[in-house]
Amino acid sequence: MAETIETFAQRLQERLEGFLETCTVAHGECTIEVPPARLLEVCTALHEEAELGFDELIDLCGVDYAKYGEAEWVAGEATDRGFSRGVRGPGERLHETSRPETPRFAAVYHLLSLPHNRRLRVRAYAADEDFPVLPSVMGVWNSANWFEREAFDLFGIIFEGHPDLRRILTDYGFVGHPFRKDFPLGGTVEVRYDPERGRVVYEPVSMQPRVLVPRVIRHDHRYEVDRVDERKEDRESATTPR
């Protein structure tokens, strides 16, 4: 790769001035965030312009940010109730919210440019939480067809302009969007064969949800590069006067 990811991000920002909300580089990957109203314009530019040349839509997925940064178990200090707190469920749940001030649903697009051998991640937030809508990019990349159906099925994101937005992975007649964070892991209905009625029947689930390993957020100092540097500076400044 002749161009580093940082200079590419710089160039992208200059080219798409005013279209992008953010442009970040982390782990060698470039991420841009685009307002839904400009999504189609940006995608068309990314696809059509030769110096960008993102000719493949590798992946498209929905993300539900409703519980981002929430832990089931506080890890910063000692507790007297321990494991049970995490297991007991929502009533006891402790919030350690660091959820960004963004809408709940987003679609994340992973693009690949074959001629330039480069990847790009595009994220677009759907403004309305109750009725998330995003424009369909099927006209730009035909491979978006099934991906958008999948995101609709699992997250309930409506892709405007999609010609055939049906459910794809869930059962015929399924109710709800299973990958939303408020959808229970065990589902809502179970099926069994009813010998009396001589057919398969649907019933509300009988099993109780349970947590085996509570979700916990730990701030490992090894990954907080800035803080380590700060501490080092503090130590240095403390020793130099001598």
Binding site: A26, H27, E29, T31, I58, D59, C61, V63, Y68, G69, A71, S98, V108, H110, R119, R121, V213, R215, V216, I217, R218, H219, D220, Y223, E224
Partner: peptide
């Protein structure tokens, strides 16, 4: 626990490109 962030790792799978897009908010899951 994995530090907060997101990553997409792709490999040349026998069938094509197999990728994992991972979003972490700093938790153990």
């Amino acid at each position: 626990c994995i530090p907060e962030g997101e990553a997409y790792a792709a490999i040349e799978h026998p069938k094509g490109e197999f990728g994992i897009y991972l979003v972490s908010d700093g938790a153990n899951k």
